[in-house]
Design a protein around this nucleic acid. Structure first.
Length: 880
DNA sequence: GGTTTCACG
DNA sequence: ACGTACGTGAAACCA
């Protein structure tokens, strides 16, 4: 059996990986996408090839080009972005840690090193796989030297292989003729000039006919077409030089011994630690040690099958424990069991089965809580239906804590927490169960299911201390204990209460829309002269911009943009445009709201939406299933739907909202005296802004000035950009810029404050709210203008939006608590970012009004008053 | 599953 | 030259 070597073109693969893998950073802010991609390609190749030897070649100086002389005057090559540059030393370290042979030879190009090694190995009868993204290397292909080129297609890496015959098949020339081809056609990416006017087609024709550049020169008169001949004739030297530049040396004097390249165990402990630092979680599964670690953990997981055993477990815990990890295993509305960790080595799964009933478990768990044994768990809100607990209970929700520590993540499952705070990789739900339902897994009594359950309490138990420490280190412990933990109960309460919806009225509303939609549909088809799907942006684009030849404003990556702001400008062009706009509006209302909401109405006539605490990166809460935070209000027709949201018998709605809370937060945080003064006057802030920015007496401010000032105020909060403001106001970037400048002249401390936010974001890697909530902003260090600008806007907006979110969370908790403590019948049922909706008993209206005003007003002590407006009504529609 | 559009603060 | 306002979620279309 022949020995086999894999040779890797280090920089080429790193480059491929960098541009092929989406941006990744670890929590230290180090970019890792290229390293990750490189390692993946490496592992894939090694899995396939199982070689005896491995060597990775790098150029010594970075960035280094094959032919420095041409880069100077052509200057086509951009310098390496720092996101990639910082990964170069790291990948080398990783490879060294793995014991991989790295060839870096001063004075030699990596290509030449690869070429030489490939030939040397071939001579010794070793088969060679050379991995590179660079087509230049194809010249080295032979029957024993296989060139492997990774390609990323739709995110999947596929590898194209080239031996001699594959090169001929694809390029119609032999590998050694690749250099002749390049001599003629050049290679822009490698700064090989080639002959001007000769491209791939002509070059291939010439070389297949005459084999080499030199021979083609001999037969110059026969060269066709004429154009090519003329250019070739005038550039003979350039062609020969280009060929020389394209030629990879195979005879470098290199010190190289095969032993060095011998492949050992890549998966050692140091590499494991390195991968953990880089946060390559799914690569860790490859490490036997890690697998062993799993197995040893899983060995200590115990399945409790009888009531006696369970009783023993709980007795021990009540006697000995001050702290447990605990998790009810729940799927949708089914509760399957309980997992509880009394220590790292005492982890139990207690299924609801046989004589172990839910009521039994509940009494035991509630007992633990009532005895003030600290409970660490993952996603408390989800388990509250089965727990007797309140704000005073000693419970620590690790999902919410992990969200505070990094609010930008998608999920905060047990495996995420284990990876981030315990630095261990535990199998995920998907690893254990795939797409299976838990209930099915439970019935099968699979080991996987039991392990899945036990890991929850195990991770909760182990992660409590490190996570709690981390909250302390980041000054977020009081935010966590005083705001986020109590908030869980407020959100849960709102979910349980829900909001009543008049089903019949909703149906009527939907029918009304339906009738009009059908009318519009036929009218539109009539005018246009054909049927098409109006809701398909693609088909609509064809109709409007090709058939009707309306001027298209902008294009999306898939075609014409048909968004409302574009169509709005085309209203006067054709009557069909207005009808399309109305059609869009109506179908939106019908599908999302009329029909959409109807699906969520439960037996009790109420909709019980979910409020998510770990979704928004700024600290806001979000609402799903259905989203009750985006019920229409701006347009009258949409607003009508609020008439179907009604209080229950004997109650009315009180709706309280903060007036411009974000601008008030800005006034406070920036300390701008003029802005603060403006708010203290309790006047129309947009009018005051207009008056000050446009140097106009307050009474003379025009409505246009006011609305411009309003847009600027919004823009400031969003992290102003002249482009964005310009787009919003439909004015030029320049005009928008002058508005912004005037604004900053008027409120200089605002400007200073925003600049400081960006600066501190750059320095620390994160920005913070008034209550110390953090948001990392890795985009700030991007070398990409777009990304960086985005980071700057995040840095300006998040502290403002986040502080406002903190404030209303405080208000919610206090209002909810007070209504309960005073034993009132009225209940908080919705939060819409700056608004609270309370279903208020008719006899409590005045009292609740005062509670809302007072608690919302006092939620934060700022240098400007927090104005609160309260309205009452018999539906959500007329409570605003 | 990704893209587009649009509802809200 | 680049090509966006900040934060969400849902529905429909289309490959």
């Amino acid at each position: 059996m022949n020995k086999k070597i894999v040779l890797i073109d280090g920089h080429s693969i790193l480059n491929r990986a960098f541009y092929g893998v989406p941006d990744l950073t670890n929590s230290e802010g180090l970019h890792t996408n290229a390293i990750y991609g490189f390692i993946n390609i490496l592992f894939k190749i090694l899995d396939e090839e199982k070689p005896d030897y491995l060597t990775v070649a790098f150029d010594v100086n970075q960035p280094t080009f094959r032919h420095e002389m041409f880069t100077e005057y052509k200057g086509t090559r951009k310098s390496m972005p720092h996101e990639l540059r910082e990964q170069v030393p790291v990948i080398k370290e990783v490879l060294k840690t793995m014991g991989v042979c790295i060839m870096e030879r001063p004075g030699f190009e990596a290509d030449d090193v690869l070429g030489t090694l490939a030939k040397k190995c071939e001579e010794q009868g070793i088969s060679v796989s050379l991995v590179s993204g660079d087509r230049d290397l194809l010249q080295l292909a032979s029957d024993t030297i296989k060139i492997r080129m990774p390609k990323t297609k739709r995110g999947v890496t596929e590898i194209e292989d080239y031996n001699t015959k594959d090169v001929i098949e694809k390029y119609q020339v032999t590998p050694s003729q690749i250099i002749d081809l390049k001599g003629l056609m050049g290679d822009a990416s490698d700064n090989i000039p080639g002959v001007p006017g000769i491209g791939e087609k002509t070059a291939t024709k010439i070389i297949t006919a005459y084999s080499t550049v030199e021979n083609a020169i001999e037969h110059m008169d026969e060269i066709m077409p004429k154009k090519a001949k003329e250019s070739f004739m005038a550039n003979i030297d350039l062609a020969l030089l280009s060929k020389k530049l394209a030629t990879i040396k195979t005879d470098c004097e290199l010190e190289f011994s095969l032993e060095e390249a011998e492949l050992g165990d890549l998966f050692n402990q140091d590499v494991f630690i390195y991968f953990k630092k880089l946060e390559f979680k799914n690569l860790l599964n490859r490490f036997q040690d890690n697998i062993d670690h799993h197995n040893s953990m899983e060995d200590s997981f115990k399945i409790v099958e009888s009531l006696d055993e369970a009783e023993l477990v709980f007795q021990e815990i009540e006697k000995n424990n001050k702290f447990v990890g605990l998790q009810y295993i729940i799927e949708e509305d089914d509760i399957l069991g309980l997992s509880i960790a009394a220590s790292e080595g005492q982890v139990y799964y207690i299924g609801i089965v046989g004589f172990i009933h839910l009521d039994y478990l509940k009494s035991k768990v509630d007992n633990i809580i009532s005895k003030n044994i600290m409970v660490a768990t993952i996603d408390l809100k989800n388990q509250l239906p089965y727990l007797t607990a309140d704000e005073d209970s000693k419970i620590f929700d690790l999902s919410v804590a992990a969200y505070l520590l990094n609010p930008s993540k998608d999920t905060y499952y047990y495996d995420d927490i284990a990876r981030d705070y315990l630095s261990i990789t535990v199998p995920s739900r998907n690893d254990f169960l795939g797409k299976d339902k838990l209930i099915k897994a439970k019935e099968e009594k699979s080991e996987a299911f039991h392990n899945f359950c036990c890991y929850h309490s195990y991770v909760a138990y182990c992660a409590y201390q490190p996570v709690s420490d981390e909250l302390k280190n980041t000054d977020m412990l009081s935010l966590f204990l005083e705001i986020e933990m109590p908030l869980i109960y407020s959100l849960y309460d709102m979910e349980v209460r829900g909001i009543e919806v008049d089903k019949e009225a909703l149906k009527e509303y939907g029918d009304k829309l339906g009738t009009r939609i059908v009318q519009l549909e036929t009218e539109i088809y009539d005018i246009v002269g054909e049927k098409f799907n109006i809701n398909s942006p693609k088909q609509l684009g064809v109709i409007l911009f090709e058939k009707l030849k309306l001027p298209f404003g902008k294009k999306t990556k898939t075609g014409y943009s048909t968004s409302a702001d574009i169509l709005e400008k085309l209203r006067s062009e054709d009557p069909v445009v207005g009808m399309v706009l109305e059609y869009r509006q109506l179908t939106k209302l019908k599908s999302t709201y009329a029909d959409g909401l109807a699906n969520y109405i439960k037996e009790d006539k109420r909709i019980h939406g979910k409020f998510n605490q770990t979704v928004a990166a700024t600290g806001r809460i979000s609402s799903t299933e259905p989203n009750l935070q985006n019920i229409p209000i701006r347009m009258e027709l949409g607003r009508e739907i609020r008439k179907v949201f009604i209080p229950k018998e004997g109650y009315i709605f009180l709706d309280a909202d903060y007036s411009q809370i974000e601008l008030r937060v800005l006034a406070h945080m920036s300390g701008d005296e003029r802005l603060i003064a403006a708010y203290k006057e309790e006047q129309d802030i947009h009018r005051i802004t207009a008056s000050q920015v446009f140097h106009t007496p307050l009474a003379e401010v025009t409505s246009a000035q006011r609305s411009n000032a309003k847009a600027v105020n919004f823009g400031i909060v969003y992290g102003i950009s002249s482009f964005g403001l310009g787009q919003d106001l439909n004015i030029t970037r320049k005009e928008a810029e002058s508005y912004i400048n005037k604004y900053f002249e008027t409120y200089p401390r605002v400007k200073q404050f925003l600049d400081e936010l960006v600066a501190s974001g750059k320095e620390n890697g994160y920005v913070t709210t008034f209550f110390c909530r953090r948001r990392p902003v890795p985009e700030l260090s991007s070398s990409n203008f777009m990304q960086r600008s985005f980071g700057e806007r995040i840095a300006m907006n998040s502290p403002i939006q986040g502080t406002a979110a903190d404030i209303i969370k405080i208000a919610m908790i206090r209002v909810n608590r007070k209504l309960k403590n005073l034993k009132l019948k009225s209940r908080l049922i919705l939060q819409i970012h700056d608004e609270l909706l309370v279903e208020t008993h008719k006899e409590e209206v005045e009292q609740v009004k005062n509670i809302l005003k007072e608690e919302m007003y006092k939620a934060a002590d700022l240098s400007v008053p927090l104005e609160v407006e309260v309205n009452e009504g018999t539906s959500w529609y007329n409570a605003k």
